[in-house]
Design a protein around this nucleic acid. Structure first.
Lengths: 200, 200
DNA sequence: AAATATTTTAATCATTTGATTAAAATATTT
DNA sequence: AAATATTTTAATCAAATGATTAAAATATTT
């Protein structure tokens, strides 16, 4: 094993552990000892490689914010696709991605709620709107209603089930397998529902 | 000031401060000193009245979970109202209530995500489904689709804007006043959208 | 092989935090 | 007024936490 391979191995181990524990517990409830245990390394290495808990968190957070909102950018700015196609892509992309990391939206939105400064210089969310073919297409279809409604609806129909699933599964209202089926069904249902709302 | 008035005053001061700080910061990021400062009392009084940070949190959390889900119960079990009326009531109740406490859903859902045991014995969420006229009415209209979809949609359309608003307001995509207007518009739009989705 | 560089470890530290306590202050009862 | 009860305060504590450090181990270079 060369030095470069080893370097990536330990550093990546810590990052991977940080992604997992921060997403599960949030920044404040995560101890550096938790991350070290998850990574299988000595605690001092966290500071050796990343300087502090805070700096490690900043790295993870930037990545996670990009992960949550980055999926939107290529879809909503694409002037060559119809609104319907955009809806299909958004639904499929979000549901597939979040199925692999269901804790992502709650983590990102919680930390942004606690510390709004996480947004302002890291991800060009405003750009999603400035260059948005999606918003323009929505406005054309429904000039009488603020397109922001439909944007939030599209996002909410995809994301909200992941945010609320701990409640429903935890209360025994639905089990994990049935929930997964529901999510898959939503990939095709969401575009239909979005279209129906635009016509209502 | 009688003993009873003073008793309620100090204890209620602490509770009120706890509601505010826990909702803003979450359990882990809240120090007991933060609550004491917010309440304008000596730190020791928190333990004198509530025994521990954890017990105080349990009180607040039970109340908040009730606040978030309790709004649903009378609406979804009411066999005498149409589905449309139920949708109107859900939208109006949620939007009015959450406007006064926009941090409530994110706080409750985050803490439940971190500690699912918060649910199991405190709020009869499963009962919302067992006795639900709402689910029955949805099933009658769309026997081909799991009514859970529509339940999550109804809840999501109301709640998700509050959850995501820190992102949109923080990124400068919309300002607070315009956001408030959007919320008010949603009170009448959500039932229309729900109806459209049921017919799609 | 020796020197140098990098990574890792165990131990330690300063600070923070939730909780406790003795004493003082205030309120209530006799 | 005196005794008793309740509330409040300032000080303190033990445990936990993020971070640091000297030394050891390992890897790389000469």
């Amino acid at each position: 094993m060369t030095r470069k391979e080893k370097d990536i191995t330990t550093e990546e181990k810590i990052k991977g552990a940080a992604r997992k524990v921060f997403t599960q517990k949030g920044y404040a409830a995560t101890r550096t000892r938790d991350i070290a245990e998850e990574a299988g390394i000595n605690l001092a290495l966290l500071n050796y490689y990343f300087r502090s808990k805070e700096k490690l968190f900043e790295l993870v957070m930037a990545e996670k914010v990009g992960e949550l909102f980055g999926m939107l950018v290529p879809v909503v700015v694409d002037h060559s696709t119809t609104l319907k196609t955009k809806m299909e892509k958004i639904a499929a992309t979000y549901i597939d991605t979040l199925e692999k990391n269901p804790g992502l939206p709650l983590f990102v939105l919680s930390e942004i709620h606690r510390r709004p400064e996480w947004l302002s210089q890291r991800v060009p969310i405003a750009d999603i709107f400035k260059k948005s073919s999606f918003m323009q297409q929505v406005r054309e279809k429904r000039p009488d209603i603020d397109p922001m409604h439909f944007f939030m609806n599209a996002l909410g129909l995809c994301v909200f089930p992941f945010i609320s699933s701990p409640v429903f599964i935890g209360a025994g209202v639905i089990n994990r397998n049935d929930f997964k089926k529901l999510l898959q069904e939503r990939k095709s249902l969401i575009p239909v529902w979005m279209n129906a709302m635009l016509k209502a």
